[in-house]
Design a protein around this nucleic acid. Structure first.
Length: 479
RNA sequence: CGAGGUGUAGCGCAGCUUGGUAGCGCGUCUGGUUCGGGACCAGAAGGUCACAGGUUCAAAUCCUGCCACCUCGACCA
């Protein structure tokens, strides 16, 4: 067979050969982040930071639509506050970083660098809530938190990470539960619609719930190696925090009542989820809603008369149509190089404009998700591109959904479960016993992910102990 | 955090066993010719050998520590 010129050259490790190495290669080569001198802490570079900004904008809009306001809290928490809720301390103590000195003087009480802000929010809520008229308080903050993790990986688990944490205070248990579920569904919709990422939404087991929560709900995504990634959590605290922190209100009837609280969070981990849900052999594949550039215009034979002018014209038109567009006018790299680079960076649509196109009054488009090429009249671009972006988003979701369905199986015994969690989710009946969860973890490496809201039984015996079981649970190895 | 592996120019690597002037390919910069899938020619620059100690007349090379990445465990968003 004659030598064929390779259609593309990649410098990233093949995805199917070594998924972890592929992930690291994509993260660094797509220029999302860089390592820093601080152990486990990353620097977000402009391209990665822009993705985070777009995630933030998308979520923040939904938070505001559901009646939340943003606040900003201190990053340091006095130790005495952290100690107030026993389960909470126990859960977070091993991974807290401490400030013990101010200037040259040792501090009387050491200060925790926030690993999460329940305790400081609760302290302030105790000051801010007096009457039923003050409720509900529905607050959120965008910030970074620090957890002294033993093993770190860019975006998936870093010592410092950026996130949002919502904290709300309600008069009744019902309102708190409603808020918890509302925010879980905000995350689910955002993941599905903006990130083209299907998720399993459900309730965590007692073992896996947040330290101090009464109930924790999560959305769980499936990565292309079949592992689970928790992409967002929503907690109902009941009165677990309001009692130790003394958050009470005087009811209409004049009775002093404890408040019911929630908290919910999503982090820069979502970027890791995007990479591992959609990425392919050529690198990143960004959902249009969070792509820093939704389309990139590549001039072909840019030195020839009229090409750059036409590209600029198209750029202006697309920009005016509200599309995030970039004109790559670098003259020191070839078009082929640019093709590969923007594919690596995951730009959803490539718009090629060369002398041949201009002659025909068209642009040559290529969509990143399917590599399908098409020719579109220049005048129709501003109108057609948004529809194309929608289609790309939908198609990416469908492919991810199909992958997830193909890698989710109902299992009824431990052998089946062990085999299934090697590259996917196992859906199984579970008796509810902690001992079975522990045994599944020990024997297969999988953890319980969550119990879907649809609890239609898929059997009647516990996958582990064989006793009568009435809980439907997803199990998977998790990041 | 436990076991194993890797770290040398922006990237990929050789050199290390047996200490003795820092190498190669790609990339970068300048100029010119190119431009529809990682262009070509000519010239040039670029490295306290991850970092910190130690041994030695002399350390990329030997010793200790530490950081980061990869694999497998433990732990966690």
């Amino acid at each position: 067979m004659a030598d064929k010129k390779q259609e593309f050259v990649t410098h990233i490790t093949p995805r199917d050969k070594d998924f972890s190495q592929w992930y690291t290669d994509v993260v660094t080569q797509a220029d999302l982040m860089d390592y820093t001198p601080v152990r486990g802490c990353m620097a977000l570079k402009p391209y990665g930071n822009r993705i985070w900004e777009l995630i933030r904008e998308g979520l923040d809009k939904r938070f505001k639509e559901t009646g939340h306001e943003n606040v900003s809290m201190p990053m340091l928490i006095p130790e005495s506050l952290l100690l107030k809720e026993a389960e909470h301390v126990e859960g977070f103590a091993p991974e807290v970083a401490w400030v013990t000195q101010g200037g040259t003087e040792p501090l009387q009480e050491r200060l925790a660098v926030r690993p999460t802000s329940e305790t400081i929010f609760c302290t302030m809520f105790a000051k801010w809530v007096e009457s039923w008229r003050d409720l509900p308080l529905k607050y959120n903050q965008w910030c970074s938190v620090m957890r002294w993790e033993k093993t770190t990986r860019p975006f998936l688990r870093t010592a410092e990470f950026w996130w949002q944490e919502g904290h709300t205070v309600h008069a009744t248990a019902e309102e708190a539960e409603e808020e918890t579920l509302t925010m879980l569904h905000v995350y689910r919709e955002f993941a599905e619609q903006q990130l083209a990422m299907p998720v399993y939404a459900g309730r965590k087991s007692d073992k896996e719930k947040f330290a101090g929560a009464q109930a924790t709900y999560s959305i769980e995504a499936m990565m292309q190696d079949g592992k689970a990634l928790q992409a967002g959590t929503s907690h109902n605290f009941g009165t677990n925090f309001s009692v130790p922190f003394g958050i009470q209100y005087l009811s209409k009837e004049g009775k002093l009542e404890y408040c019911h609280e929630t908290s919910w969070g999503a982090s820069t981990r979502l970027i890791g989820a995007i990479i591992m849900t959609h990425g392919d052999e050529r690198g990143l594949k960004l959902p249009p809603a969070v792509a820093p550039y939704q389309a990139v215009i590549l001039p072909i034979a840019a030195h020839k008369g009229g090409v750059m002018e036409k590209c600029q014209e198209v750029y202006d038109a697309l920009k005016a149509a509200g599309i995030r567009v970039r004109l790559d006018d670098r003259d020191n790299v070839s078009p082929g190089f640019k093709f590969n680079e923007w594919e690596l960076k995951g730009v959803p649509v490539r718009v090629e404009i060369g002398p041949r196109d201009i002659e025909n009054g068209v642009a040559t488009l290529m969509r990143r998700d399917t590599f399908e090429k098409m020719t579109v009249p220049l005048s129709e671009l501003p109108e057609k591109l948004p529809a194309l972006l929608d289609d790309i988003s939908r198609s990416m979701y469908e492919i991810a959904l199909r992958f997830r369905e193909e890698h989710t199986k109902i299992v009824s015994n431990m052998d089946e479960l062990a085999a299934q969690v090697n590259g996917g989710y196992a859906k199984a009946m579970w008796c509810g016993d902690r001992a079975c969860e522990d045994k599944i973890k020990a024997d297969t490496g999988a953890t319980s992910r969550n119990m879907p809201f649809d609890q239609t039984p898929v059997g009647d015996k516990c996958v582990c102990c064989g006793r009568k079981a009435d809980k439907v649970m997803y199990f998977a190895k998790a990041y």
